[in-house]
């Protein structure tokens, strides 16, 4: 029989392992049970339970907070795949509530209004794993050092414009590549600059990738967008407003799942992109009043 002292919950292995099971999958934003079921039927690996999708948060303004627990629970009851939910940057009390509700992962997200101007949530204290956004290697490593089990790009949420997610992914890849040429002294310097232990930087240099799963998020609206991000090295894709702000969410959700599964097969991307109906309208980054990605560095 198993000795109880050997039983461990919420370890780094368990948290990072959970994120690894999401690889090659699509995580979809949903606001109610009906949308959650559409996402599950389309083949999503998980859903993100929200009160409003980012496009609406952007439009309506005001302070965006954690979703109503009632809503989160309703969504958790309606599907068998993992359910994630967002808390504000640094708002550990919201994270505690989400953990107690039993969500499978917490997204400490810049899409909500930040709650702490100094710090992010100390994620190592939690049993539930966290995903955090990052625009570059420094941000990613700070979040991982704080205990994030998964990283995602901080593409401009709610714009349907993939350019920022691409910028972040390309930046990350080239910064990891650059580590190859660095000697001990330079690695120490860059670790100081990133404000993380040099051992973490060395680990990334050796692995030539982040030590946790790295997803694309923000502005992904079409199957080709998803394929683009996967070909740039993302492990999977978050789709926010892109699905339920389009004219045919069911069909588009399935198409994006297929696009991620077969991301390097242009024939399949072409096939699933055909006759999808109107994509979400989309916004140009230059014309935005505020950029969400600048929150929480």
């Amino acid at each position: 029989m198993v000795e109880l002292k050997k039983l461990r919950f919420g370890s780094e292995l368990i948290k990072r392992g959970f994120a690894k099971m999401q690889k090659g999958g699509v995580i979809m934003d949903v606001v109610d049970a009906k949308q959650a079921r559409i996402a599950e039927n389309a083949g999503a690996v998980a859903v993100m339970a929200l009160e409003r999708v980012p496009a609406d948060i952007r439009k309506e303004g005001g302070v965006a907070r954690m979703a109503d627990p009632l809503k989160v629970k309703e969504i958790m009851r309606s599907v068998s795949i993992p359910v994630m939910a967002k808390c504000r940057i640094g708002h550990f009390a919201e994270a505690q509530v989400l953990e107690s509700l039993g969500v499978d992962m917490v997204d400490e997200s810049e899409v909500l209004t930040p709650a702490d101007p100094f710090r992010h949530v100390d994620k190592k204290k939690f049993r539930v794993p966290f995903v955090c956004g990052a625009r570059n290697l420094g941000e990613a490593l700070r979040r991982i050092h704080e205990g994030a089990a998964m990283i995602r790009t901080k593409g401009e949420a709610g714009t349907g414009n993939v350019v920022e997610a691409v910028r972040h992914q390309r930046t990350m890849v080239s910064e990891i590549e650059n580590l190859k040429k660095m000697n001990e002294k330079k690695l120490k310097k860059i670790a100081r600059e990133y404000m993380v232990p040099v051992s973490l930087v060395k680990e990334v240099k050796k692995m030539q990738r982040l030590p946790v799963v790295n997803f694309a998020a923000g502005g992904i609206a079409t199957p080709a967008d998803a394929s683009l991000m996967m070909q740039l090295g993302s492990d999977g894709v978050f789709v926010g407003s892109g699905i339920f702000k389009s004219s045919n969410p069911e069909k588009r959700a399935k198409a994006i799942v297929d696009a991620v599964a077969h991301f390097n097969d242009p024939k399949i991307i072409g096939k699933v992109s055909s006759g999808l109906g109107e994509a979400m309208k989309g916004l140009e980054i230059e014309k935005l009043d505020k950029k969400l990605q600048e929150r929480g560095v």
């Binding site: 461990r8 919950f9 993992p82």
Partner: peptide, 12 residues
């Protein structure tokens, strides 16, 4: 065994 927070490591 339940949701993610019930995930665990154990010797078997």
């Amino acid at each position: 065994f339940g949701r993610q927070k019930e995930s665990f490591e154990a010797d078997i």
